[in-house]
Each structure stands twice: as C-alpha cells, then as structure tokens.
Simulated assay, not measured.
Amino acid sequence: MDQPGNDDVIVVGSGVVGLTTAVVLAEAGRRVRVWTREPAGRTTSAVAGALWWPYRIEPKALARSWALTSHAVYEELAARPEETGVRVVEGVMGETRLDELGDWAARVPGLRTATADEYPGTALWARLPLIDMPVHLRLLQDRFRRAGGRIEERTVTDLGEVGAPVVVNCTGLGARSLVPDPAVRPVRGQLVLVENPGIGEWLVSTDPAAGTTTYVFPQPGRLVLGGTTDEDDWSREPDPEVAAAIVARCAALRPEIAGARVLDHRVGLRPVRDAVRLERELLPDGRVVVHNYGHGGAGVTVAWGCAREAATLLGVAASG
C-alpha cells in the first residue's frame, strides 16, 4: 500500500456524506482515500427516501444553509437524471405552513401554499430534488475515482489507527462507538417498495396525534412508501405488521396504492444527534481530524453544504 504523504486525506465512511466529502476534496486536488466497513450500496444512505428537505437536523440555521448549498448542486445534477439519479419533482408537504419555515424558504424556487384541491389541509406545494440513491451513490463513486480517489473496504475501530495526516470522520451512527460519541443514536426508518400504479408526484403527510409521518416518493421503477421514526431502535429487520400499516396509511392518501404489488422492504437507521458535529480536531500527535456526522434524516439534504464546510476546515478551496 502507498505510504501516506503530507497532502493525504482518508475519509472514513462511504454513505452520502462521506462520498460527497471525498468528491469535493479530491476534485479540489487532494489525494484522498475512502475507508469503508461496507460498500456504499449497503449503507443507510442507499435506502433513504431521499427527498430534499431539512428534516430532523440541528442546528437549524446552519442546516438550512447547508441544505440550500446542496439544493443548488442537485438542481444542476437534475439536468442529467439517468446519470446522476437526481430529478426535480412536484409534490405536497402536508401540515406545513410557509410562514413557519423562515427566510430560507424564499430561496426555494416555486415553494407556495397548496390549494384545497391539492391537499385537504394546511400544506405546501413544491418542486424539490428527489434522489434515486443507488444511482446517485454510483455517480459519487465514479466522480471520486475519476478525480484520482480510491475506495478501500477496511474496518476502523480507532481513529488513531488511521494512518494519514488528515482524517475526515463521516461514520454516521458508527461514530457512537468509534469516537466514542454516545450522543449519536439511531432513529429507525422502515420503507415499503411497491410497483408504481401511475403516481408522478411525491406526498408527505404528518399526523401529530398519531405521531406518524406518511410519505409517497415516486422513484424510477418503483414507489417508495414510508415511514417510521422509531427512536433508539437498532433493529434492521423489517416488521411485517409495520409494513402493512405503512401501506394502509399511504393508500388512505392515494387509493390507487391499495393492492400495488410489493417489491421489497427496507430498513435504515438514521444517525440522529442533538446537533451535527462538523468541526476540526487536532490530535495529540499533530494529525487533524474533521468530524462530519450526526445528520439524522437529512444527510442527503445537506451533503454538499457539509462537504464544502469540511473542505474549508481543512483549508481547501472547494469547487464541486
């Protein structure tokens, strides 16, 4: 294996945050490797519903800035959806008021109050990036490799064992034991993939009384139905009863979903933290660690903004 040089960076983690950070650094000219315990296709990012929206992430002001940076990138990538996995899709965000969102909402093109014909209650209509994550993760890997990066499957149990002058910690939920940081905890999300009966718009509906969020995301070749927010639940096994309840809730909103053939069941563990940890740490031996984890259910939404801030913390002028 090549010996690390002074400009070497090792990014630990190959979810969307890790890969996006690696792309930004590599395309800025740094020599970057990604160390990952599992392939990108097996990370939580791979099963994300992946609608752009600042969801379950703190601190709000920074998260919204990161999200808007990412939104601009996704709008550009949406010009090549087959290659990038990014499309801009119309839909309705239920139980949401425009005046509750803050100034950032004015920078989202076309965001407006939904009409009564579009949704029976208070809601917003929007055209938002919706990302097909398996395709998008492949794009990130391809861009990273074209920029000279390398991806290596390695399990890291101690950041101190990572032999590079600069380490970027994008381990998500893994940071709980790796750092260790007990503030990171799982919020389990279960999804059902069904054949699409002809739905072209996404829909999110929240029932505060029941404590549920129901969503319908049309992806190429499938319809993604969700979801759950199970606090501190580590189970990655789909629950059949939960799956049936998800389908029933979605069918109550869009009756054509009833009877749609089930294609698959997915579970992801969102790496939730009271606040994203995005900061530079100097180790006793003089090496630098930049932590970039704890993005909860909004990793896709803020990935590019956080990647560019991580690059800035390393003194790298990011252009990607």
Rank of each mutant, 00 (worst) to 15 (best):
L139G: 03
L223Q: 08
G268A: 15
T113Y: 10
G226H: 13
S45I: 10
G121K: 13
E256K: 11
V276P: 08
T43S: 11
V289L: 01
P59Y: 13
T21I: 01
V24L: 01
P186E: 12
G149P: 09
A50F: 11
V108G: 05
G163N: 15
A50M: 05
V9N: 11
Q190M: 13
G85T: 01
V88E: 12
R280D: 03
G121I: 04
Y55V: 06
I57G: 02
G172E: 11
L278M: 05
L51D: 07
D132N: 09
V276T: 09
G226P: 13
G259A: 04
A105T: 07
I199S: 06
P208I: 06
A40I: 07
V290K: 06
W52H: 06
Q190D: 11
T213V: 14
E153R: 12
T84Q: 03
L128S: 10
G121C: 10
R112T: 01
P180H: 06
G91N: 08
R107G: 01
A298C: 03
G259W: 00
V162I: 05
L137W: 03
R280Y: 09
E82Q: 03
C250I: 10
L140H: 08
G296F: 14
G41V: 02
R261C: 00
S65R: 15
A245M: 12
L191A: 15
G189M: 09
R277Y: 11
A78R: 06
V17P: 03
Y119L: 04
Y74D: 01
Y119V: 03
T229R: 14
P182L: 02
I131M: 01
V288W: 02
G221I: 00
L77K: 09
A298E: 02
A244G: 15
V288N: 11
V73L: 02
R185N: 07
P240L: 08
W52S: 03
E38H: 10
T214I: 11
M1R: 11
E256F: 01
L193W: 15
E95Q: 14
R249N: 10
A244E: 15
V135M: 00
V184T: 14
E231I: 09
A245K: 15
T155N: 06
D158H: 14
A298L: 07
G148F: 00
E241Y: 15
I246W: 15
V88N: 12
V290I: 02
V204D: 07
I151L: 02
A307G: 09
G294Y: 10
D158K: 13
A164T: 10
G226M: 10
T43A: 01
P197T: 13
A251Y: 13
P271Y: 14
T36E: 08
G49A: 12
G172D: 12
V247T: 13
I199T: 06
